[in-house]
């Protein structure tokens, strides 16, 4: 099979000739364009305005963007986001790879149970996550402080949500809890398609399980790794983290991500123009990062 043919698959272009791919892509592209991209173009337009979201609009040009780079609150939220990228995205991807390779190919007793357990965090509304983790981290009666007390590490008891030195990491840790399962689930579905005979051949060649993981599982899962990385990265920057932070610390003590700051600007302070500028920058940031990941991961 030549590389040329591999790329093109001529026989696939059968329904509408060279327009065939567009037929397949049309439903998704159309609905995305109308209901996501078109409104977002409006958001971009708002970012050039001084507008409270209700009254009259005044054209500002790029002033909002200039102000943003001089706004210490923006930079504070930016650095919170950096922590969340590590704890919502990078750590779960690595841990997820390890866990899923442990349970992906074995017929261990109880695999289904573990798989269900890892799915569980996906089903809970973020308001409830907020309440429960407030109990876990509480300075007065929290689970963590109680455990520390029992094992004699009283001196490490602290108000986890109540200091700049701990709060962003405490919130980030919730991200590991939440996204680890997501990573495991996607990796598990990917592992199913790896041909078992490749592993058998490697075993005959004397490869131990670590080597099998590095030379077979990892490369075979590269597309899944891109998916998990991209999705968790987006969630760490936009929606997901937003719900978690607002229901736990409310953004205090250096925990406020850009998305929450933008939301508060828009709907608490009525700075819809400025908030839109933040959103636009956030989206550009996500685009750049995800494109880098895709280039590296899929090696194009």
């Amino acid at each position: 099979m030549s590389a040329e043919k591999d790329k093109n698959f001529e026989p696939l272009f059968d329904i509408m000739g060279k327009f065939t791919p567009y037929i397949y892509i049309l439903p998704t592209l159309a609905i995305t364009s109308v209901f996501l991209i078109y409104p977002f173009i409006n958001t971009f337009f708002y970012s050039l305005l001084k507008w409270d979201g209700i009254g009259e609009m005044n054209f500002l040009g790029i002033t909002n963007y200039i102000n943003m780079f001089q706004d210490p609150k923006f930079w504070a939220s930016f650095s919170a986001n950096l922590i969340y990228i590590v704890m919502y995205s990078i750590i779960p991807v690595i841990a997820g790879l390890i866990v899923s390779s442990l349970i992906g190919r074995t017929e261990l007793f109880g695999v289904r149970f573990f798989r269900t357990v890892f799915f569980l965090p996906q089903v809970i509304a973020s308001v409830a996550i907020g309440i429960i983790f407030s109990w876990i981290y509480s300075s007065q009666f929290g689970v963590i402080n109680q455990i520390l007390g029992v094992i004699g590490l009283d001196k490490y008891q602290t108000a986890w949500f109540g200091h700049r030195s701990t709060a962003p990491y405490a919130v980030g840790f919730i991200g590991i809890w939440l996204t680890l399962g997501f990573a495991v689930i996607i990796f598990l579905s990917g592992i199913q398609k790896i041909d078992e005979s490749i592993y058998e051949a490697a075993k005959i060649d004397g490869a131990n399980s670590t080597q099998q993981f590095i030379y077979i599982t990892l490369p075979e899962l590269r597309y899944e790794m891109v998916v998990v990385f991209v999705v968790t990265l987006i969630r760490s920057l936009s929606t997901n983290i937003f719900g978690i932070v607002s229901s736990t610390t409310g953004g205090s003590y250096g925990t406020r991500p850009i998305s929450l700051y933008a939301y508060e600007l828009a709907f608490v302070q009525y700075e819809l123009g400025y908030a839109s500028a933040l959103v636009v920058i956030l989206v550009v940031l996500i685009l750049v990062l995800t494109q880098i990941i895709e280039r590296i991961g899929e090696g194009s």
């Binding site: 407030s134 509480s138 300075s139 007065q140 108000a159 986890w160 409310g250």
Partner: peptide, 16 residues
């Protein structure tokens, strides 16, 4: 003030 007040929210402060 109660210990660790900086990490408590209103719903936690009331039961104390």
């Amino acid at each position: 003030f109660v210990d660790g007040f900086s990490g408590l929210n209103g719903d936690d402060a009331l039961p104390i």
